[in-house]
Amino acid sequence: MLTIIKSILSLFLVIVVGVYGEKKGIITNRLNRGLTDLLLQIILPFMIVSSFSFSYTNTIKSNVIKTFYYSFFAYIIVTVFSYLLTWPIKKEKKIILHFANVFTNTGYIGFPILHALYGVEAVIYGSIFNMFFVLFVWTYGIMLFNKKMKKEEFKEELKKTFLNPSIIAVYLGIILMVFDIQLPMVIKESMTSIGNMTAPLSMIIVGVTFSQVNIKAHLRDWTIYYGVVSKIILIPAILYFISIFINDRSIVSNTVIILASMPSATMTSIFAENFDIKKDYAAVMVVATTFLSLFTLPFLLKIII
């Protein structure tokens, strides 16, 4: 428990750095967008590829296959239960809350926590889960916000999905695993050094988001509280009890539960901004679930590990 709390608190302190940078005008909106692109298109893919670069046992190879179908069914289960949980919410707020429930902060917060708890093995399984995140967010996620999307637009988004840097990194990682390819040490160490920037940079970006949201304006909105409870308490509980029901408390099932229990993805506010749907409301959900998860995650991790 102490290790978990230290890991999360250290991430929180880096969030404070992001808040400070934005308040002092050091990190502008343009710079923050650049940092986000740097993280998603370069640093995170390097972390994914480097995590695949080590000797595999038959158990790990078997677990990778298991992670594929566990991740797929986890997204289906969360989507169904989220739809039921958001039934009392209407119109645009329902879209935001449903998206926020299904899509979690796997890269920014999930990967650093997995690495702290289990090491690079869990990052491999997390990369598979993240692959499904990318596939679902650029298909189902887009469809939620843009229900009038034309067939040609959908095909274009699907094409972008399969060419996403994180997905390409998973492709490369799987090739390294299947053919047992060992990268030269100098390349491996360089990739690991770049990948290690994932946690601090991601927390700085979250801190910038924190500092730009007027949370007070939404304190009387009951749907925010309902959405937060659904996201970081009810959905993790559902997945945990399902894992007990199927009698699987392995590192694979724990990895899937942990990543599915992360706070709402920053893509929630990015999509809301892009489609002009409840932008402030979406930002508050991201901030609220991220902040409150600092208190709920230690207890969740203590229970499932």
Rank of each mutant, 00 (worst) to 15 (best):
S193C: 08
I194K: 03
G195Y: 00
N196R: 13
M197Y: 06
T198K: 01
A199C: 07
A199Y: 02
L201F: 05
L201R: 02
S202R: 03
M203V: 04
M203R: 04
I204V: 15
I204P: 05
I204T: 05
I204F: 05
I205Q: 03
I205C: 04
I205N: 00
V206N: 07
V206F: 03
G207I: 07
V208F: 02
V208H: 03
V208P: 01
T209A: 11
T209N: 14
T209V: 12
F210I: 15
F210K: 09
F210R: 09
S211Y: 07
Q212H: 06
V213Q: 03
H218F: 05
H218V: 00
Y225P: 01
G227L: 07
V228I: 14
V229N: 05
S230T: 15
I233M: 14
L234Y: 05
I235C: 12
I235D: 11
P236S: 13
L239D: 06
L239N: 09
F241K: 12
F241P: 12
S243K: 06
S243I: 09
I244D: 09
I244H: 08
I246H: 04
N247K: 13
D248G: 04
D248E: 05
I251Q: 02
V252P: 03
N254I: 03
N254L: 05
I258Y: 02
I258D: 04
I258M: 10
A260I: 04
S261F: 09
S261P: 11
P263E: 14
P263R: 10
